[in-house]
Design a protein around this nucleic acid. Structure first.
Lengths: 103, 103
DNA sequence: CGCCATTTGTACGTATGTATG
DNA sequence: TCATACATACGTACAAATGGC
């Protein structure tokens, strides 16, 4: 279960990380509407800098797989029950599948 | 024309910078298909870190205003003559107005 | 209410790699 | 070969939001 990062690989580490977390999401390991590990957690677990983690999260965000909230964390998309409280504008004018997962 | 950045403002510096450059693009100061100032230039001109410049460029990229090419620079979108040489996949599955400018 | 821990946001610095011309 | 420009990755620090107490 612990896909490891390879700094020597052709693929950038942050992309490898986004692949890993993204796969974990699609595999159901991280359920829709729930929080994925915090940046600190991911840093510790994978031995990378925060920057790298944030870049990876950025990829997942662009893919519409997750949504990040200041002070709260990063949630797996698709929690239609909406653990949202208010928020001025949830959508971000992205291609992003507002329904949640792509397939 | 020299809109200055205000580190004390409510709006994040990188967002202020994206506003400035974005406005310069829409005002025609930076013509479609041409290069905008390099990261080094923007750093020097505005007195900010490279990271900040890159964040600003990221905003413009998300807005579909510019396109960045490794080793080349960041171009104002709308150069339909296509200064492209080959490239595996130009689009990035973004909302991005493939035609160029939003309006 | 204030206090505090956690978490993301912003901004800086440095180094090295890769692409282009 | 070389200079320029962007890409990746590490580090630090402080701000702001959140939520439990």
């Amino acid at each position: 279960m612990g896909m490891t990062l390879d700094p020597l690989a052709d693929r950038a580490v942050y992309k490898q990380l986004s692949d890993i977390v993204g796969a974990a999401i699609e595999s159901g390991e991280y359920q829709p509407g729930t929080l994925i590990p915090s940046e600190s957690m991911l840093m510790a677990r994978h031995g990378v800098a925060r920057n790298t983690v944030r870049l990876a999260m950025g990829v997942l965000r662009d893919q519409g797989l997750v949504v990040t909230r200041h002070g709260r964390g990063t949630f797996v998309r698709g929690g239609e029950h909406d653990e949202d409280h208010d928020q001025p504008s949830t959508s971000r004018s992205r291609t992003a599948n507002s329904s949640g997962l792509p397939a």
